[in-house]
Amino acid sequence: MAAEALKARRRSDYNFSLEYRTRWSDNDMYHHLNNSVYYYLFDSVVNTYLIKHCSLHPPTSDQIGLVVHSHCDYFAPVEFPAVVDLALRVNKLGKSSVTYEIGVFERGQDDVKAVGEFIHVFVDRDNRRPAKTGMANDLKRGLQQLMADNPKL
């Protein structure tokens, strides 16, 4: 997707959000959140949603999600002590895979600071291969609720 379209994202474009209070150690030497922190945040919002809304229990679930792709477009810096809202939606839902989009919004500001993409492929825990039947039903139902064209949760 074009950077201009991503830069125009608003909180209302997403169906789930999670608050994160930045830490002093999140800043890098340039006094803004280090790029690696964004990936930590993406992983956190995705897995929070999967655990709370998709019946995923990582230590014991038969299927696990493997990240096969991720990237981030940065539009403006965030720095400690900001509070950010991590906004989540699903742009594509396949038989075994899901493409998430995460918008990072600083509390009190309307403009998106960064937009990331994160792709999971759900595989059998033991053989690391997608199940012939695809992802588990609870997982798929929960992810369908995040589809970009669904009303906000």
Rank of each mutant, 00 (worst) to 15 (best):
M1N: 08
A3P: 00
E4W: 04
A5V: 12
A5F: 08
L6R: 06
K7N: 10
A8C: 07
A8H: 09
R9I: 00
R10P: 01
R11L: 12
Y14N: 09
S17F: 13
S17G: 06
R21M: 10
R23Y: 11
S25M: 10
S25Y: 05
D26S: 06
D26C: 02
H31S: 15
H31C: 12
N34A: 06
S36Q: 13
Y39E: 00
Y40D: 13
S44W: 02
S44V: 09
Y49H: 01
I51T: 05
K52S: 01
K52A: 06
C54S: 04
C54M: 01
C54N: 02
S55G: 12
S55C: 04
L56N: 02
L56A: 01
P58Y: 13
P59A: 07
P59Q: 06
T60Q: 10
D62F: 04
D62Q: 10
Q63Y: 00
I64E: 12
I64S: 13
G65P: 02
G65I: 09
G65V: 09
L66R: 10
V67G: 04
V67L: 07
V68E: 12
V68N: 11
H69Y: 12
H69Q: 13
H69S: 14
S70I: 02
H71R: 09
H71N: 15
H71W: 12
D73I: 00
Y74E: 03
F75H: 03
F75V: 09
F75R: 01
P77M: 08
P77V: 06
P77F: 09
P77N: 07
V78N: 11
E79Q: 11
E79I: 00
A82F: 00
A82V: 05
A82Q: 04
V83D: 01
V84L: 08
V84F: 07
V84S: 04
A87R: 12
A87D: 13
A87Y: 05
A87N: 14
R89Y: 04
R89W: 04
V90G: 01
N91C: 12
N91L: 12
N91A: 10
N91D: 15
K92Y: 06
S96R: 08
V98P: 05
V98Y: 07
V98W: 04
T99R: 15
T99P: 03
Y100V: 09
Y100W: 07
Y100A: 08
E101Y: 08
G103F: 08
V104K: 05
E106P: 07
E106F: 02
R107L: 06
R107E: 11
R107Q: 14
D110E: 15
D110S: 14
V112L: 01
V112Q: 00
A114I: 05
V115R: 00
V115I: 07
E117R: 12
F118P: 02
I119E: 03
F122T: 04
R125K: 11
R125E: 06
N127C: 14
R128T: 01
R129D: 04
K132L: 12
K132P: 11
T133P: 00
A136D: 13
A136T: 04
N137P: 15
K140G: 02
L143V: 07
Q144Y: 03
Q144T: 14
Q145W: 00
M147W: 02
M147E: 14
D149Q: 15
D149W: 14
P151Q: 11
L153A: 14
L153T: 09
